[in-house]
Design a protein around this nucleic acid. Structure first.
Lengths: 145, 145
DNA sequence: GTTGGTGCAAAATATTTGCACCGCA
DNA sequence: TGCGGTGCAAATATTTTGCACCAAC
C-alpha cells in the first residue's frame, strides 16, 4: 500500500469517526489535497477536481473544505491578506513565501533556530498561540538570479 | 502643540516630500487614523470620516489608504484571513488578537521574551522577514471571566 | 492651466445562502 | 427511506476600474 492509498484509507476512517458521508466529490477533493504539493486555493482545487468530476460545483468545494477543516481533516493555510488556501497537513507549521515565484513552503517548528518568542507583556493577557510567516527568496529563485 | 497637531504637521511635510496633494479627504482620513486606537478596517474609516465629510466615497478611502501605504504614511495591519486593516503606526510590530472581543493589540519586538526565530533550513533560500500574530485572551476578557 | 484626486457607477472577485433534488448509509 | 450532500442561481461582501469633473499646486 503506497502513501496515497494509506492516506485515503485514513480518510475513510476519519469520515466514519466524524459521521461524514463519503461521496465521490469528497473523496476526489481529498485525493487532490494529497496530490497537491503546494497550498492550493479553493479555485485551484476546483479546477483540478473538475478533471475527474466535471459536474462538481464550486460551492461544493467551498463547503467540503470548510467541513473538512471543521473536522481537522485539512487545515487552512493562513496567509496574510491572500485568499483562502487549504493544506492536507494538519500538524502545526508555518509558511515561507517566496516573493519572486510566490511558492509557499512549509516550515516546521523543528526547523527554527530557536523556540517561538512570546510577548513578555503581562498587561496583554493570555497568549495561546503564535502564527509565523516568513518571506524571502526560495532556493530556486536565489539560484536563478 | 499637542500630539495630534504635531502628527498632522508631520503629515503636511510627508505629503510635500512624497509629492502628494493635500485634500480635505486625505487630511480627514489621516486624522481619523491617528484618532483610532484600534486597527480600523476600510469600512470603519469610511464611516468615521463621513461624519466630517458626508460626500466622501468609499473608494476614495480605498485609494487614499493604498496611496498612504505606498508612501509609508500608514501600514497595512496584516491579519490572517481577515479583511484589510490599516494602522497609522508604521514601525514594525506584530499583533495580538483577542479571541473573545476581537481587539487587536500591538506587540513590538522589544515586548518579546526572545528574538524572533528564523528557519534554520539552508535548503529554504534566503529569509528576509518574519511576521507574527499572537492569539489568546486579552486582559479585560480574562478579568471578566 | 495642468495634473492628480474625487465621486459615481459598474465590473471583477471571493464567498455565502436558499432551495429543490439526489444518493449514501 | 431519511437525512445529509450537492448543484444551481442568486445574494452578499470586498475591492478594483473607467470616466468625467473638480480642485490643489
Amino acid at each position: 500500500m503506497n502513501d496515497a492509498e494509506e492516506m485515503m484509507a485514513g480518510f475513510d476512517r476519519r469520515c466514519r469517526e466524524a459521521g461524514l458521508k463519503q461521496t465521490p466529490q469528497r473523496r476526489e477533493i481529498y485525493r487532490q489535497m494529497l496530490h497537491c504539493e503546494n497550498h492550493p486555493s479553493i479555485e485551484e482545487v476546483y479546477r483540478q477536481v473538475r478533471c475527474m468530476l466535471p459536474h462538481i460545483s464550486l460551492d461544493t468545494v467551498y463547503r467540503t473544505l470548510a467541513t473538512f477543516e471543521r473536522h481537522g481533516i485539512v487545515s487552512q493555510a493562513r496567509l496574510f491578506g491572500d485568499r483562502t488556501r487549504y493544506d492536507a497537513r494538519t500538524a502545526p507549521h508555518y509558511h515561507f513565501i517566496c516573493r519572486e515565484c510566490g511558492r509557499v513552503i512549509d516550515v516546521f517548528p523543528d526547523d527554527l533556530d530557536r523556540p517561538e518568542p512570546l510577548p513578555d507583556n503581562r498587561e496583554l493577557g493570555m497568549v495561546e498561540s503564535c502564527h509565523m510567516e516568513f518571506r524571502g527568496l526560495c532556493r530556486d529563485c536565489l539560484d536563478n538570479s
